[in-house]
């Protein structure tokens, strides 16, 4: 009985150590619930973000985006699960470098930089019940436009 209890305790302990970040999963942008300015140059009609933990100890984000004009794109990024520099696996970095900073599980800051200078930050927070992902965008929209962005985007877990 004692051995079984010990085994269960060790199992629960290791399970908690390996618990996935609450951001892991598939998230759909709810355009109606999102507010604030978004770049007029590329308004989004539909967006899906899929976060998954890789065996390499990284997090992979696959971002599928459909614009109002019907064009669509897929980007794939990876970064260390403990936070760190973002690698552009499938998409053109267009002179950008990104760092994903893990604040606590389910809370991240993304720092967008051009030539090492910050131009945009995204604060990602997963709600306590794990069903909603809030993204607050602040800064400049694009590399060339310089258009200001101040928006909150709401995603629902699929």
């Amino acid at each position: 009985m004692r051995k079984a209890m010990l085994f269960l305790a060790v199992f629960a302990f290791t399970g908690s150590l390996w618990a996935a970040d609450p951001i892991i999963g598939t998230w759909k942008l709810i355009v109606d619930k999102s507010k604030g300015s978004q770049p007029t140059t590329d308004p989004v009609k539909e967006q899906m973000e899929v976060y998954r933990q890789l065996d390499s100890g990284e997090i992979e984000l696959t971002l599928t985006r459909t614009m109002v004009d019907g064009t669509s794109s897929v980007s794939k990024l990876t970064w260390p699960a403990q936070g760190g520099t973002v690698a552009f696996v499938q998409s053109d970095p267009r002179g950008r470098s990104l760092v994903e900073t893990l604040i606590v599980p389910g809370e991240w800051y993304v720092t967008y930089m051009r030539d090492g200078k910050q131009y945009l930050i995204v604060h990602k927070v997963v709600s306590k019940d794990g069903r909603t992902l809030f993204q607050t965008w602040k800064g400049s929209a694009g590399l060339a436009s310089g258009q200001l962005v101040d928006s909150t985007r709401v995603y629902e877990r699929q």
């Binding site: 260390p80 936070g83 760190g84 760092v99 893990l102 604040i103 720092t111 930089m113 930050i121």
Partner: peptide
């Protein structure tokens, strides 16, 4: 990386070989 959140509020991300060491 020194991330400016708002005037008077910063996050510093320390990394080793691109992996976050601490904040």
């Amino acid at each position: 990386i020194q991330t400016l959140i708002a005037p008077g509020e910063w996050y510093v991300t320390a990394m080793e070989d691109g992996k976050q060491l601490g904040t």
